[in-house]
Computed example of a mutant assay.
Amino acid sequence: MLIGELAELAGTSARTLRYYEEQGLVRPQRDTHGYRQYDEAELKVVHEIRSLLAVGFGMDDIKPFVECLRATGSGHVCPDSVAVLRRKLAEVDGLLAELADVRLRLHTQLTQALAHRETPCSSPSPTPPSTRSC
């Protein structure tokens, strides 16, 4: 299939496919006129690339998955892919811990703000209560 056909089937653009080729991830054949020709295996590779990008992997992280996919038919079973998965999982766990800390701090601040708002002002003021700020 030509680059336009692959782009349409993969839900991407020809420009993106050329970028993947520059990164060494997609391997087109060239016909006698120099046009890129892709076989069905490249569609699977492009789907793998796009799914990994969608969950936050970078282009360098994706290379072991593509190599593994070409060698075994599955991008996740080779030692290099497993190492990248472990590293990415540890990164995500760290981000989740940071987010949990931020959430706790925000919850504490909100609780304090609501408690302060519900507490009447300690000093009397000549300003009517509806316009008074504490």
Rank of each mutant, 00 (worst) to 15 (best):
C121Y: 12
V26E: 09
L17G: 05
A7I: 07
L2F: 03
S130G: 01
A41E: 15
S133D: 05
D60F: 10
A10L: 09
V77C: 00
L43R: 10
S51Q: 13
V102E: 10
S51G: 04
E40K: 08
R15G: 11
M59K: 03
A14E: 08
L95M: 14
L89W: 09
S74E: 08
L2K: 10
G11I: 10
L2R: 09
S74I: 00
S123D: 13
S122M: 10
T131Q: 10
A54S: 13
L17V: 10
K44T: 15
R86G: 02
V45R: 07
S125Q: 02
S130Y: 00
R15Q: 13
V82F: 07
V66G: 05
L110A: 02
C68W: 02
E91H: 14
T12Q: 01
A113E: 04
L89I: 09
G73Q: 06
L9V: 08
H116D: 13
S122C: 07
Y20S: 02
A41Y: 07
E42D: 09
H47M: 08
S13F: 02
F57Y: 13
A90Y: 01
C68G: 07
L25Q: 06
D31E: 07
T131D: 01
C68K: 00
T131C: 04
R27T: 15
L9W: 12
K63E: 04
V102H: 15
R117E: 08
A41W: 08
P28Q: 13
A54C: 04
E98K: 14
L95D: 14
T111G: 05
E118L: 12
H107R: 07
L6I: 06
G75K: 00
Q37T: 00
R86L: 03
V66P: 01
G11T: 09
H33G: 12
S122T: 14
D39F: 00
T111L: 11
A41C: 03
A113I: 03
T32G: 14
S74D: 03
F57T: 03
E8M: 14
R87C: 04
K44F: 10
I62L: 08
A54Y: 02
V26N: 06
A90G: 11
T119E: 14
F65V: 00
D93E: 14
R36Q: 06
E40H: 11
H76K: 11
S133I: 09
S130K: 06
D80A: 13
L85S: 00
V102A: 13
S74H: 09
L95P: 05
H33V: 04
L43S: 12
C121K: 13
R70M: 07
R18A: 00
H76D: 03
D60S: 15
S122E: 12
L99S: 14
L99K: 15
Y35F: 11
V84W: 08
L17S: 00
T127L: 06
L110T: 06
R15N: 02
